[in-house]
Each structure stands twice: as C-alpha cells, then as structure tokens.
C-alpha cells in the first residue's frame, strides 16, 4: 500500500465527511442561507427592470456576477479562513502528529472548499430558477462550462487563500487581511456596480485580481448572446480571463507549498496553547 496515495484517499473521504457534517450543522447551513437570502434579495428587487436597450432582466445580468464572486470567495475563504481556524483549535497540529496527516488534511480542505463552493452555487441557482425565467433556457453545455470555470477559479484562488491564511495569526487578523481586501476588490470588480462606470485606473486595478475575471467568465456563459456592452473592453475576453486566472494559479501553486510548510513547521503544542491564551485574554 502506498502511504501517500492512501493518505490522499483518506483526505478525500474526510473532506466528504466534513461536508456532510456541515450540511447537517444548523450554524453552517444558517451561514449559507444568510448569504443566499442576501444575494437573492438583490435579484428579487431587480426582477421587474430590464437592461436599457434589451429585453433582458437586470436580475439575469447580476446573477452570473454573484456566482463569479462566490467562486472567488469560496477559494479565498475556503483556504484562508479555514486555515486560521484550524491552527487555532489544533486541527493542523493533530494532522502533523499523524503519519501523512498533513497531506490528508490538505486534500480534505481542497475537497471541502470545492464542495462548499458547489453547494453555495446550488443555493443561488435553485431559487434563482424561479425568480429568473431565463435561467431555465441555459443549455447543458453552458452548465458544464460553469463547472469548468469554478474548477479553474478555485485553482486560482485556493493557493492565494492558503498563503494569506498562513500569514494570518488570529480570527481578528482574518477580517483585516482577508475579508477587508476581498470586499474592496469585490467593490471594484463589477459585481454590484458596472465596472465601466469606474475611473480607468480602477478598472485596470480590478483586472489584476481573479474576481473580475471570474465574473466575466460566468457572465460569458449566461449572457454571451446579449453582448458584452457592460464589460471593460466591450467584448468578451476569455483568453485574458484564462491568462490572469492561470497566472494566479501558477504563482499560487509555486509559492503556497513553501509558505504552508514553513507555517506547519512552526506548529507545536506550546504554540497552540499560547495562541489560545492570547485569545482568552482578548475576550476578557
């Protein structure tokens, strides 16, 4: 038996088990539903209006952008947030104490990030089908494209999230170094507000990050026929989406293993205990 493949399989099994656990946990479900309701509220209030010059609903235009954001968010938070929490409660140290446990741990986290992202997309799309009639007309091929984009998006964002998560010391830092930047980037990425209405330098900045390109790619899947008037160049630029997301993937995959190894090497019983003591002090 090859211990490495064996541990990878165990990681996969663990990812599935933990996904199942989160699907039966009121806390986790509540979190998912909260976001779904917030997203859907936006879509709901836009359902009556159409985009100027077309007969397409604004809702149909917004939904793909939200899905693009969810993929980016699932990747970044799925790695950074989870890594910070798992270091705090000793999950990571437990993995370190077990043969090939670290490998199993990372495979499980990638699995659960992928399943979590898939689930949050379903939570948007299922009620979305009722609110946005155009969705029912989307072809099977386009749904498959969407899955491909989601996979590519996770590849671009998970390593980046893991790097940020390795450098984030506490849940407070999580807000400052993860949530806040993600929200800022989201704000300029044409998800909630047309990117073409922003100053040109902001548009350039937004196009450095995966969020715009994930939104762009998902919009292409659903809105290809209605034109790219709201996009930066006024046309679909899938090759650029592939280049930017690919660059993030390659850079992330090149840097993340070293950063993760260094982070993991520092974990020990006294480090976890000290972190806990600090957390207690913050609460007091």
């Amino acid at each position: 038996m090859n211990p490495v493949r064996h541990a990878a399989r165990l990681g996969l099994r663990r990812g599935l088990a933990e996904f199942r656990q989160s699907m039966t946990s009121a806390e986790d479900i509540g979190f998912q539903i909260f976001f779904a309701v917030a997203f859907l509220a936006v879509v709901f209030f836009q359902r009556g209006s159409t985009i100027e010059g077309t007969d397409m609903s604004v809702a149909m235009a917004t939904l793909p952008s939200l899905v693009g954001l969810q993929i980016a968010f699932g990747g970044i938070m799925g790695a950074a947030g989870v890594l910070t929490i798992d270091r705090g409660d000793g999950t990571l140290l437990r993995a370190k104490a077990i043969p090939n446990g670290m490998l199993g741990y990372f495979v499980s986290r990638i699995t659960s990030a992928a399943l979590g992202t898939l689930m949050s997309m379903l939570i948007i799309f299922l009620p979305g089908l009722l609110l946005v009639p155009e969705l029912a007309a989307v072809s099977l091929w386009n749904w498959l494209y969407l899955l491909l984009i989601a996979a590519f998006g996770l590849l671009a964002t998970l390593p980046a999230g893991a790097i940020i998560g390795s450098m984030t010391k506490s849940p407070n830092g999580l807000f400052l170094y993860v949530m806040l930047p993600v929200m800022l980037v989201t704000g300029i990425s044409g998800i909630f507000y047309p990117i073409t209405a922003l100053p040109e330098w902001v548009q350039w900045l937004a196009q450095v990050f995966p969020v715009y390109w994930l939104g762009h790619a998902v919009r292409w899947v659903f809105l290809a026929d209605t034109g790219a008037a709201a996009e930066v160049a006024g046309v679909w630029r899938l090759h650029w989406a592939a280049i930017v997301l690919g660059a993030w993937s390659i850079a992330g995959l090149a840097i993340a293993p070293g950063v993760l190894r260094r982070m993991a090497r520092r974990e020990s019983g006294s480090v976890v205990a000290e972190r806990r003591r600090e957390a207690m002090q913050r609460m007091a």
Binding site: T91, R94, P99, V272
Partner: peptide
C-alpha cells in the same frame, strides 16, 4: 519521516479540534 512518525503517539493539553465529529 512519516514511517518514524507512525511509531509514536502524541497527546497534548491544548487540543479542541474536530468538535463536529
């Protein structure tokens, strides 16, 4: 290495992990 790791067990005081399992 991992083979060496497999021959030992470690119990620490600060573990609070896997609460949902």
């Amino acid at each position: 290495d991992e083979r060496w790791r497999a021959r030992m067990g470690i119990v620490l005081q600060s573990w609070r992990d896997h609460g949902k399992w």
